[in-house]
Design a protein around this nucleic acid. Structure first.
Ligand code: ATP
Length: 748
DNA sequence: AAATTTCCTCTTTTT
DNA sequence: GAGGAAATTT
């Protein structure tokens, strides 16, 4: 096979980056400028032109899928198979290193990787042990505090204890780590943390790895957190030549500790680093780029970048205001179908992006009804289904007898007569014997005196017997056979297939899992479990097949599509309600919008609605167009005018909005199931609700007893308006507008 | 003592 | 529209 000329068709700066001499190098460039392309070609260049052995190269990508694509791309560029490259996400690479070096950091080489759900259940246990379980939302809050600390490399001992809250977190953090360690498990953050500790505390090992990985390349560097940054520095060494590419305007993972200032930090840690800027955009035409620039330029404290494309002309951005989320979904589906019928695009050229996963539901329903093929990325991925997690918990419990979280999950699933009391007793007994639940279970079988009644004892013993058999078979049996045996012995299929349609679906999911497991052949169980644990949402997406792609804005990072829809451009959604308070978070919402816009090659559609159905159903809340829409120069757009937020805030009657829409929009899909009346109209107005639309989310109010607060949400229940209000002193309350003694406060 | 049902809160983004 | 906790039934 012939090698493609690596530098053909590239611009000067791109070539400079690809062929940069081996010193620390930082490529900062806007979207679509070929950052990923450059990084990929540099790897190919190192191997193909400079003769660097592949095993000396580590390339870090943001997802496993990106890693796979990079590997393939490099092989295509070089015209041959290349073995030995280390390409993967930080987490995957760290997991691999830790399996090998476990002993040096005091962990088991067969550690289990805990996901967020497992983490939460550990936090719950920790809280219960410490007697801190009063609040319902506490576990999540503690977990996020703990995770933030870990991302900053702060150990439980080093956690600040300045105030009561800190001291509580520190306590829980400490217990949480102890529970993890007892379960021989690591959470996602630990993968990074232990790797950093490994290299920081063991000079000899560090030198070995530094010598091996002469070339370290990192994509999406703006979304690294402190632990990841530290890892790069430790692995590269002070004299090393890390090659990092990123765009500070595309940093969108602050919530999990990412900090785009790592780009600046890199420059100060490597003062001699070569800085390369790529200026030309090869993805989008100028209209899209002008809009994107207009959005991002409003962010404070940034270096302005010009985005330049040789494609000066292109379709204007289509803005579309819809009456509600149903209409929005129908508009999207109709528009895509039109484009495909007219042969302008294939389904796979189109992507629909949204801020929150919850928004995908309405879209999915509409795609199904219209018979338009689609693939949803993320959301409720296969591996997070209940039935799948149950079975994986069996496998994990077989693999790792210390894994108490998994054992608790399966101990009475399917129900086998082991209830709360028995579980509590078992826990107490195990604790007294200083054993894991599984080990205690095993001890039970050998006739140890125990506190259990005959019935409970029988149930426990039979589970213990099964686990014993499986553990003995583990290494001699392919995963598929093992899983088949678990299904047989536990009668799991009968348990989930209850005759309902949901039951059938669960059954199919399990059968699918069995097929996947059987396809693993003789792969060690531990490895299979690790792969599953580190799967990301985009990873499960295969690009073959012709379907529209539905995905969150976060998942869209790094991707590109000819046609992009961004839906739900409303205040409270984008920017998200949770981000409105904080300047930094608001800036990140803006970057999210920017990332979305710059995914489009040819055509952008931006939609928003006047009313969106909220959580509990009902008629939904009124919504306002996103502030970001106002920042796009009108000459770049066609379609609905963007309503001024200040003006629309003065609306009091909702009916006028609804009448403004054509009674039967041209783009409404004919539906067989619900022909004439497409969706419930608003209830007839009566006197007692004429004042109701005074309240909208964001409005500040004063309650005679509860004091000042802010409206979070409003919906209609039995003709009255029900308000969710967050009071400064009393937290979230749900009140009826008609009876609550409320006054509105002026904004600003 | 276990199983089932009802209640109730919470709902951003994810390796 | 889930998932955990409490209440209720078996
Ligand atoms: N010199 C070039 N000539 C033609 N096409 C190019 C050139 N460089 C990059 N491209 C194309 O531009 C597109 C964007 O490239 P790439 O995804 O590498 O950009 P990026 O900077 O990583 O983008 P983002 O930051 O948005 O992820 C790709 O389709 C790529 O093939």
């Amino acid at each position: 096979m012939d090698q493609i000329d690596l530098l053909q068709g590239l611009n000067e700066q791109q070539i400079a980056a690809i062929t940069a001499p081996p010193t620390a190098t930082l490529v900062i460039a806007g979207p679509g400028s070929g950052k990923t392309a450059v990084l990929t070609r540099r790897v190919a260049y190192l191997v193909g032109q400079l003769g660097v052995p592949p095993y000396q190269i580590m390339a870090v990508t943001f997802t496993n899928k990106a890693a796979r694509e990079m590997q393939e791309r490099i092989q295509r560029l070089l015209g041959q198979q290349i073995n030995g490259l280390t390409i993967g996400t930080f987490h995957a690479i760290c997991a691999r290193i830790l399996r090998r070096e476990a002993a040096h950091v005091g962990i088991s080489p067969s550690f289990t990787i805990y996901d967020t759900e497992d983490q939460l259940s550990l936090v719950r246990m920790a809280l219960a042990e410490l007697g801190l379980d009063e609040e319902r939302s506490a576990p999540r809050r503690f977990l996020s505090a703990i995770s933030n600390a870990k991302n900053e490399l702060i150990t439980p001992e080093a956690y600040p204890r300045g105030n009561f809250n800190d001291r509580q977190v520190a306590q829980v953090y400490e217990r949480y780590q102890a529970l993890l360690s007892a379960a021989k498990a690591l959470d996602f953050d630990d993968l990074l943390l232990y790797c950093v500790a490994l290299f920081r505390d063991h000079a000899a090992i560090r030198r070995d790895y530094q010598a091996r990985y002469a070339h370290i390349l990192v994509d999406e560097f703006q979304d690294t957190n402190t632990a990841q940054y530290e890892l790069v520095r430790l692995l590269a060494g002070a004299q090393g030549n890390p090659f990092c590419v990123g765009d500070p305007d595309q940093s969108i993972y602050r919530f999990r500790g990412a900090d785009y200032r790592n780009l600046a930090r890199f420059r100060s840690d490597y003062p001699h680093a070569k800085l390369i800027l790529l200026e030309q955009n090869y993805r989008s035409h100028q209209i899209i780029l002008d809009a994107a620039m207009a959005i991002i330029d409003k962010n404070p404290d940034r270096v302005r970048k010009r985005l330049y494309s040789t494609r000066r002309d292109g379709a204007k951005i289509v803005l579309k205001q819809l009456s509600d989320d149903d209409d929005e979904a129908q508009y999207v589906v109709w528009t895509i179908r039109e484009a495909v019928q007219q042969r302008r695009y294939a389904y796979r050229d189109c992507a629909v992006m949204f801020r929150t996963n919850a928004q995908s539901r309405v879209l999915e329903e509409t795609f199904v009804r219209a018979g338009v093929p689609y693939k949803l990325i993320g959301g409720a991925p296969f591996y997070s289904r209940r039935e799948i997690k149950d079975l994986l918990a069996y496998l994990r419990a077989i693999q790792n007898p210390s894994d108490d979280v998994s054992l608790r999950r399966i101990i009475n699933t399917p129900p086998r007569g082991i209830g709360k009391t028995t579980l509590a007793k078992l826990e107490e007994w195990a604790l007294a014997r200083n054993q894991s639940l599984s080990d205690a279970l095993g001890a039970l079988r050998s006739g140890q005196p125990s506190p259990f009644s005959g019935k409970a004892l029988g149930a426990l013993e039979s589970l213990a017997a099964m686990l014993d058999v499986w553990r003995n078979l583990r290494d001699s049996m392919p995963i598929g056979v093992l899983l088949g045996d678990v299904l047989d012995q536990t009668d799991y299929l009968k348990y989930i297939n209850d005759g309902t349609p949901e039951g059938r679906e669960r059954l199919e999911n399990v059968q699918e899992l069995l097929r996947v497991a059987e396809a693993q052949g003789d792969k060690p169980l531990a490895l299979y479990l690790e792969e599953i644990a580190l799967l990301s949402d985009v990873d499960t997406q295969d690009d073959s097949g012709d379907h529209v792609v539905l995905l969150t804005l976060h998942a869209a990072k790094g991707l590109e599509f000819p046609v992009v829809f961004i839906v739900g451009l409303e205040e409270g959604l984008l920017p998200h309600a949770q981000s409105l308070e904080d300047e930094e978070q608001l800036a990140e919402e803006r970057r999210l919008m920017y990332v979305g816009l710059t995914r489009a090659k040819d055509q952008l559609y931006l939609t928003w609605t006047l009313r969106r159905v909220g959580y509990g159903g009902g008629l939904g809340e009124r919504t306002l167009a996103s502030r970001f829409l106002e920042d796009i120069p009108p000459e770049l757009t066609v379609g609905s005018p963007v309503p001024k937020r200040s003006a629309s805030a003065a609306f009091t009657a909702r009916s006028s909005d609804d009448r403004a829409l054509p009674p039967r929009p041209a783009w409404r899909l004919p539906t067989t199931s619900q022909p004439a009346a497409p969706r419930p109209e608003l209830p007839p107005r009566s006197a007692n609700i004429s004042t109701s639309s005074l309240y909208r989310s964001g409005q500040r109010v004063y309650h005679d007893r509860l004091g000042p607060g802010v409206i979070i949400a409003s919906r209609f229940v039995d003709g009255d308006e029900e308000l969710d209000i967050r009071f400064e002193k009393h937290g979230l309350k749900r009140l009826f507008a008609s009876i609550a003694p409320l006054r509105m406060l002026d904004d600003e």
